[in-house]
Design a binder for these strands. Sequence first.
DNA 1: TTAATAGTGTCTATGAGACAGTATCAA
DNA 2: TTGATACTGTCTCATAGACACTATTAA
Lengths: 252, 252
Amino acid sequence: MVDKARKVTRAAAGARAALGFVRPLSSVDVVAFAVFDEALRVLLVRRPKVAGEPFPGRWALPGGFVDVDRDADLLACARRKLRDKTARVSPYFEQLGSWGSASRDPRGWSATHAWLALLPTGGTAPEQVAVAAEASWRPVDDAMQKGALAFDHVEILRTGVERLRSKAEYTSLPAFLLAEPFTLPQLQRIYEVVLGRPVDKSGFRTRALAARFLAEAGTVEGDSNRPAMGYRLLDRSTPAVFPRTFSPRLGH
Amino acid sequence: MVDKARKVTRAAAGARAALGFVRPLSSVDVVAFAVFDEALRVLLVRRPKVAGEPFPGRWALPGGFVDVDRDADLLACARRKLRDKTARVSPYFEQLGSWGSASRDPRGWSATHAWLALLPTGGTAPEQVAVAAEASWRPVDDAMQKGALAFDHVEILRTGVERLRSKAEYTSLPAFLLAEPFTLPQLQRIYEVVLGRPVDKSGFRTRALAARFLAEAGTVEGDSNRPAMGYRLLDRSTPAVFPRTFSPRLGH
DNA sequence: TTAATAGTGTCTATGAGACAGTATCAA
DNA sequence: TTGATACTGTCTCATAGACACTATTAA
């Protein structure tokens, strides 16, 4: 933080750079989701209260400038930004989009590469995604309020929530929010929290099993009296897509 | 071109810039699609044959560095890049993703913001999307071949084709490839070209009309003897989404 | 035995896919 | 009248949604 503040005070003097172009500021921001205590939550950090830093003391998405010496590519940069704030878990990453304009950062023309990250939790085990002191997991409904975040981060967060909810309708993406092994009722509850509405048990089971993204992992003592089948994801890199319309029938 | 070359020769001396960070190069590239002569085509431009320019004489996606003095935001930059190469049409734009790494551009750490653009044509009227001399509309199957394009543009193009094909399965996105007014058989042919497979006529009509994104525009002399109903898009900014699974029934 | 949750079966309506048929125009 | 294409009707089957039912455990 101190080091960062010192850098900032050097200000925007030498921005005119190679190739005859003023180079925009390049940053990466991460919309990191986790589900626990029956709520969809997003990781936020406080902006430093230091002269020259915009939005001092305000909540913001974790992120910052690309470091060309440390980051091999954009994903590596996003991973670093998240690793700085959370315990070591293996989150799912997906590009969310870019926000770039002359006005979004008072320090100059700025473009940020936003990433969506999903952290696996036990549903009631936030210690698995423990955070740095100045960071916090906040319910998305609070964080999405107008003016709740620095920069244009509310808009970025809204896009992230939309993406997650949209993909929850037809992919197994919410499964990346669960630590393994998990039971089908647990997965169903994640879907209900993400979508914000109840989901039919029978239909959910049928669809989830038909999508062939789960591997049985033995009986697990679940949240109830009767043990349930535990599952792991067959592929922790890409969600499965549920059958959709407007495509030819597959079987014969 | 001459001016651009002169800029390049200044090389990477002053890249260390404001805020204590070396700023990556920021560019925008456009994957612009059009359909004519029964093929899905992508707009390509030749890289200048000038000392200091990487990939001289090779085909590449239209694009280039963000100009912080001319571009208010990333979309404006993408529009400018496309306007430089094509006649004045009003294309559909959608963010495709970011590609950024230390190695993708020999001139230094570079991040590009890629956009998908769809240009409306009459299906057999390429003059509506006329291009600059050094540019060309190439069938995507050729351009997607390994090594066919400069930088990592084949990968970006592949992502664009995937996005378009994927969305063609459940949205009205391909309609943005048609000049108005158009007939349902014309729209169906666009879907068939994009998807690369035949589409059932009856089902297509039912779905297209049920999705409520079309407005009747009077009878049009189509490609055949019998005139067909002409249609316009109700909303030229966002495609309509066809009903999907895993969502509650809407009517009662 | 009871409570609680895991998991299954069944009915119904919708709607996609396939394809045959009818309508309307030019020549 | 013929040919070509626009457009409609109909049959079938898969499956989503709703909900009632059975199974298996702890206490």
